[in-house]
Amino acid sequence: QEREFRLGLITPPVHVWNEEARALGETLSEMSDGRLSVATFPSGQLGSESAMLQQLQTGALDMAWLTTAEVTTRVPDMSALHAPFLVDNIADAARVLRSDEAREILDKLPRATGTVGLCYAMTGMRQLMTKEPVDSAEDLAGMRFRITPAPPIKSFFEMLGAAPAPMPLTQVYDGLANGQIDAIDMDHESIINFGYHDHASHMMETNHHLFGMVALVSGRVWAQLSDEDKALLQEASQTHCDQTIDRFVAEEDGKLAALKEIDGLTISEDMDPAFFGDIVTRWDAEWAEQTPYVQKMRDLVASF
């Protein structure tokens, strides 16, 4: 029978995720001879990421493309993907997201979140932007950093001595302008789109963690699908997850080049993790207790 999947995202219609989510609908429709289709709900029309996760659980929403950060609260293993300085370039980030180790983490999702994870994608690497110049890691102490609320990200900034301040994306620009926050943890795409450099003119190209996306299907909905439809959905989603990753890898250098063109924005390129002292050791020590995947991911990247 015909079925239209409802897919929710937090990103606006022009974002790469949304373009690929719409393309997923077309692919699915072709593969199923028009039997399956996708209706996308962009810009958090259906609520925040945590609200969408709750709607996946009740089955109100069929699918959602959420940040991996959102899932870390319920799946500690997912925190390993946010390990600081796991990879130093976006191409390696793509390899991490396509690895068997990362895929294993998805097995934890049904029990812990009531959802099925189909594949990963990303929205690039995260960088640091500050209002004041940073000459040494000590300068970060006491700075109020806007972060995405997720335990692994929070502990990274706490270990730097900064004061992590979770804040929805909608308030970040004004938060910088009115001094509620001194600095942000952000990806190239968002920096360009929102113009955060107006009020935070110092950027450190740290690539300090990769910012992943996970394509989720409601567990309730998944249970009702035939094996054939499950396979179709899995394959089509994988295709567009991969295309999303490829696009971010291909465009990352161009985005940095565009940021360099901006007057008044100082960029410190290629920051060495050593600048931040023994943060990696400390973070790993704390998180290795919570999940074996921290070590698995480090070993994986060492093998690249």
């Binding site: 945590s50 709750q54 659980q57 009740t58 089955g59 609260t73 319920r74 979140t113 009531g114 567990g219 309730r220």
Partner: peptide
């Protein structure tokens, strides 16, 4: 139940 209300934080 697929109901996660009691572990929402």
């Amino acid at each position: 139940t697929f109901n996660f209300i009691y572990t929402d934080t």
